[in-house]
Write a protein that binds this DNA or RNA. Structure first.
Lengths: 238, 238
DNA sequence: CTCGCTATCCTTAGCGC
DNA sequence: GGCGCTAAGGATAGCGA
């Protein structure tokens, strides 16, 4: 966009937010219209801002909007097994995009630098230093890649729900099969970047929207580590 | 977008359409997510393609989607006066954007030419020719401007519904007050660029989705001319 | 508030793997 | 099918009228 790169966080300035809202709303609707035209698909959209009295809709024809809503409700809306499946994946999608953005930024920086710093470094470093440095870099790359992959896989499939019973990790595709926790107690302060609604129950499990998540050997795992851990233990769990 | 300018018409090539659909769907969802984050608004979206079994939704959390649909239904969906108001405005929005695109293109062309042709023309033309030419240009500009304005005003407000009774134009904000036509008969072939579903009834009125539009003194008016005509006669009609 | 402008960032069509 | 790349078109933040 123009002039500066935009950081993805709520705009606090009222006037600026309103202007941005109108501009981007127009853009969004144009994109939806284009997708509809180009690919012959049906799109319905409801945009609801506190500043506006009425929700904005696309397409402008109410009947088409309603018929698509009905179609959706018939296919999926009434299926209780699907409800809430994507509650966490939304959060993870943000994380994934942020990580990928960082990767792209890092790549770009390297390209822009075009190695002049590298040659200086090479001339002044011992072989051991170089090996250590390369090893550290490779580890970092692997780390980032595996985190991206685990998040990607996790997002592409429906979210699994986790619980802990008798020191074994329980997981299920159906939230109803994971024993719900009735009394959430503590918000874990050691991980301030956790899901805002995530809490810890009296058994030491993560709780999200009434269902247990997991803790392993008494250690707390932020959601992405938790997923990674799941992939590690899944081989001998099934 | 890349390499070539895209014409806004359905993509017939199956593979290409699918690829474009996926790419643009991603983009659309990203834009929706950004708007949500930046401006703190609620957006719900259902994307339904024939190629996919399930409709794609945004946000991925069904509950949020459902609650926004409910909010919309409470506010507007049940209001019969609003149903169908925007059926024509969708078409007009396309027309408006096409006209504006042409304007921009023409402007650009003039700028790029940077007047060399003009000076040649000026040197070889008589004063009368110049005056006539200027007059013609001014008229064209006014014409385009008024068409854009009328379409713009029309789109910004709810669509009015038209009918003809006793040689007088009838218009109403409520489609139920315009006498519906029960037997649509002829598709007007003289205006191939009319709304695809628009037809002419036995009384010589345009018919769109069961409601009369208008004809004046036996002449057919394409939708935008029709609107222009409405604004001209409205002064002494009320 | 709306419009136009412009610099800059973002999206994406086409291509190759 | 997907991924990565690149060039071109498109969107838009900030500003001024």
């Amino acid at each position: 966009m123009g002039r500066v790169k935009i950081v993805m966080e709520p705009i606090t300035n009222d006037k600026k937010r309103k202007i941005t809202f109108n501009a981007r709303k127009q853009g969004l609707i144009k994109k939806a219209r284009e997708l509809t035209t180009l690919c012959d698909v049906n799109i319905s959209m409801i945009i609801c801002s506190d500043d506006q009295e009425n929700p904005e809709i696309f397409p402008p024809d109410c009947q088409k909007l309603n018929s698509l809503i009905d179609l959706y409700k018939r296919n999926r809306g009434m299926d209780p097994q699907r409800i809430n499946f994507y509650a966490i994946s939304d959060y993870l999608m943000d994380r994934k995009m942020k990580i990928e953005e960082e990767l792209v930024k890092a790549k770009k920086k390297n390209l822009e630098a075009k190695y002049p710093i590298w040659f200086d470094f090479l001339n002044n470093a011992s072989e051991l230093q170089l090996r250590e440095f390369a090893f550290g870099l490779e580890n970092k790359i692997l780390d980032v890649k595996s985190r991206i992959e685990s998040i990607k896989n996790f997002v592409l499939e429906p979210v699994r729900f986790y619980g802990v019973e008798d020191n074994r990790i329980m997981q299920s595709w159906n939230p109803n099969l994971v024993k719900p926790v009735t009394r959430p107690i503590i918000t874990p302060s050691s991980y301030p970047d956790l899901l805002p609604n995530m809490m810890v129950d009296e058994y030491g499990s993560f709780v999200y929207e009434g269902h247990r998540s997991t803790s392993i050997n008494g250690a707390w795992f932020p959601p992405d580590q938790l997923i990674h851990e799941y992939f590690l233990v899944s081989d001998f769990a099934s």
